[in-house]
Write a protein that binds this DNA or RNA. Structure first.
Lengths: 335, 335
DNA sequence: TTGTAGGCGTTATCAG
DNA sequence: CTGATAACGCCTACAA
C-alpha cells in the first residue's frame, strides 16, 4: 500500500541506509543526495512506519492513561491535559477506561505491555498491589494523577487535599459562618475522603469552633445523588446550619438540588462551597463557589513528568500543585 | 527485558514456529507439546509483542478517534461508548484531540497513519476535503460519529437532528405553549445548526403556528455563554414568550442562568427544553427536560461498525439512532 | 507433528 | 559520504 523506505531508496537511487540517516537527521550525506531523497519522499508521499521503527527502537512514543470513568467531567479534564502535553511532545495516548474494575485494569495493563507503551499514567484510584506488580514487570515508568500511593514510592501530581479542604472551610468561617457542616463521600477514600475530612475538622478547631461528628454526613460515593441525599440528613443532624462544605462539585450540586426541593434558597438560606471546579460549577444556578483543583494542569504536568522519565530522567519526585478558591454565587457573607 | 517467543521455544524445547502456532491456535501440534509450551509461557511470563506482530500482520488492533474537545461532556460520552466497544473487541483507542484545529487534525491523521491505526472514528465536526483525502491515502475505514458528510459517502452514526428538534418543539406545543422561541448556535452548522432550526420551524408550521424569524436567536457557538447571552435577546424580540427550545443542553443551562438573573422562574415563568441529555441536564436545578441523543450508544455502535469494516465487512451504511424526550422539571404544562 | 528460513520496515554497525 | 547487512520479534510457507 504505502511506500516504504526501500521505495524511496530506489527512487532516489541511494541505499536505504542513507534514507534512514536523512530521516533521522544523522550526519553522513551530501546536501545534494539529501535533496534528492527529500524529493523522492515527497513524490512517493512516504511516511515512516512507526511499527517497524518501534520494533527496533523499543520505543513507541505511546503512553497509556488509565481512568476509572472516562466520561466524568473530572477525568475528562485530566485527559485533556494529558493529551495536550503528549501531543506537544509527539506522543500519543491510549485511553484505558478501567470502569472501576480490577480485572479491566489488569487487562489494560497487559494490553499496554503487549503494545509496548512507553509509560503509564494512573488516575484517581488507589494503586493496588497487583497493579503495582504488573507495572514493575513491564519495566515502564508510571506517574499518579490526582492520587498518591501510601505503599509505594511513585511520583504523583495532585493538590494537597487536606489543605484545600482546610481552605474551603476557613473561607466559610471568614465569611462569618459558625454552624458549618460537611457532606463527604466514602470516608475511607484515601484521597477524596479522609484528607478532606481532616482538613475540615482542623480548620474548625484552629478557629475555635467545636466539632461534633454529626457535622459530617457520608455518602457511598462522591456523586450528585450522594450529595442530594446527604443534605437532608445533614439538616436533620444539625440545627442552625448556615453553610456546608462539600467534598466534590457533584455532591455540591446535588445538595443544591435538594435545597431547591426543600424550599431552601442558596445562598440566602444556605451557603455551599464545592470542591474540584468542574465545568458544572460555573453552569449551576447560582454558579458554584468552589475550591479548584487545576485538573488540566495536573494532567499536563503528569504527562510531562512521565515523558521525561521515559526519555531517561530518573528519580522524579511528586508534585503538589496549588489549589485556589473560586468565588461565585453560592456563599453568602454573614458579617 | 521481557521474554520473547524464542525464549519460550528454547525453554519448551521446540521451535518458535510451534510456539507461534500454539499462540494463534492454529492446528499442528500434539497436546503434550502444547502443554509444555503453555507451561514455559507461564514460567517465563511471556507476552507476545504486539509491535512485532503488527509489523507482519499489518494490523495493529488500534483505532484512532478524533474529537474536537475531549473534555466536553458531549465528547466524553461518545468516547466512553467508543472505548467500551473497542475494549470488548480487543482493540485499543488512541485519543486525538483536534481542538477544532485543522492543522492538529492533519497532524493526527498523519500520526495515525504512521502508527498504522486500523481505522478512524471522526467526531462531530465536518469532514473537510483535506481530511478526506488524507484518510483515503491511508486506506483505512472511517466512520462518522454524530455528524455526517454531504460531500462524501461515508458511514455515520447519529440521530435525525431535524426530527429531534421537531419532536422537542411538538412536545412544547402539546404542553399548550404557543409563543415558542428557539436559541440556536451557529446557523451554518450542518448538523447542530440548520437541521434543528428547520425541525423547529416545521413543527410550528405543521401545528398551525405562524413563524417569524425573530423567534430564533443565534449564538456563535452552542455553549453555556452563548445560551446565556441568547435568552435576553430572545425575550427582547418576542413578547409573551412562554417556552424555548434550545439547540444544546449547554445553551439551555445558560438560558436558565440568564433567566435566574432576570428574576424569571423556570418553569413557572418560562419553560425550556434542551438538546443532548448530557450529565448536566439531570444536575441542573430544576433538572432539565431535554431531547436525548444516545451518545454512548452512538460511540459504541460507531466503533462496532468501524471494527467490522476493519475486519472485512465491506459497504456498511449509515445508521440513524432514535432520540427521545426526557421529561424532567423545566417544562410546565399550560393546559 | 514439527522445524527451517525468509521477510515485515526500520535502525545501526560495519566496511569501503 | 555511502552501502551492505545483521538485527528487532514474530508469522508463515515450505520441508521434513
Amino acid at each position: 500500500m504505502s511506500a516504504t523506505i526501500k521505495d524511496v531508496a530506489r527512487a532516489a537511487n541511494v541505499s536505504i541506509a542513507t534514507v534512514s540517516r536523512i530521516l533521522n537527521n544523522q550526519p553522513g550525506y551530501s546536501s545534494k543526495t539529501k535533496e534528492r531523497v527529500l524529493k523522492a519522499i515527497e513524490a512517493l508521499d512516504y511516511q515512516p512506519n512507526a511499527i517497524a521503527r518501534g520494533l527496533i527502537s523499543k520505543r513507541t512514543k505511546t503512553i497509556g492513561v488509565l481512568v476509572p470513568d472516562v466520561s466524568s467531567m473530572f477525568s475528562s479534564s485530566l485527559l485533556k491535559g494529558v493529551e495536550d502535553a503528549a501531543y506537544s511532545k509527539g506522543y500519543s495516548v491510549i485511553m484505558c477506561h478501567t470502569a472501576f474494575s480490577g480485572i479491566r485494569t489488569m487487562d489494560y495493563l497487559r494490553l499496554l505491555n503487549e503494545k509496548r507503551a512507553d509509560g503509564i499514567l494512573f488516575t484517581s484510584e488507589v494503586l493496588k498491589e497487583a497493579y503495582y506488580n504488573e507495572i514493575q514487570r513491564m519495566g515502564v515508568p508510571v506517574v499518579l494523577l490526582a492520587t498518591q500511593s501510601m505503599s509505594y514510592s511513585i511520583p504523583y501530581v495532585k493538590v494537597d487535599d487536606r489543605m484545600a479542604a482546610y481552605s474551603a472551610t476557613r473561607y466559610l468561617i471568614r465569611k462569618g459562618h459558625r454552624k458549618i457542616g460537611m457532606i463527604s463521600g466514602n470516608k475511607e477514600d484515601i484521597i477524596a475522603g479522609k484528607p478532606r475530612i481532616y482538613g475540615f475538622i482542623q480548620a474548625l478547631e484552629d478557629h475555635g469552633l467545636p466539632f461534633h461528628k454529626n457535622q459530617i454526613v457520608y455518602g457511598p460515593g462522591f456523586y450528585f445523588e450522594d450529595g442530594k441525599k446527604a443534605l437532608p440528613e445533614l439538616l436533620k443532624q444539625m440545627n442552625g446550619l448556615t453553610a456546608v462544605v462539600s467534598a466534590s462539585d457533584f455532591m455540591a450540586v446535588g445538595a443544591m438540588s435538594a435545597a431547591y426541593e426543600l424550599g431552601l434558597r442558596v445562598p440566602d438560606d444556605l451557603s455551599i462551597i464545592g470542591y474540584d471546579n468542574l465545568d458544572i460549577a460555573k453552569m449551576s444556578v447560582p454558579a458554584l463557589t468552589t475550591v479548584a483543583q487545576p485538573l488540566l494542569k495536573i494532567g499536563c504536568v503528569g504527562a510531562q513528568m512521565l515523558i521525561e522519565m521515559v526519555e531517561g530522567r530518573k528519580e522524579i519526585e511528586g508534585r503538589i500543585l496549588p489549589h485556589r478558591i473560586i468565588e461565585r454565587g453560592t456563599v453568602r457573607s454573614l458579617s
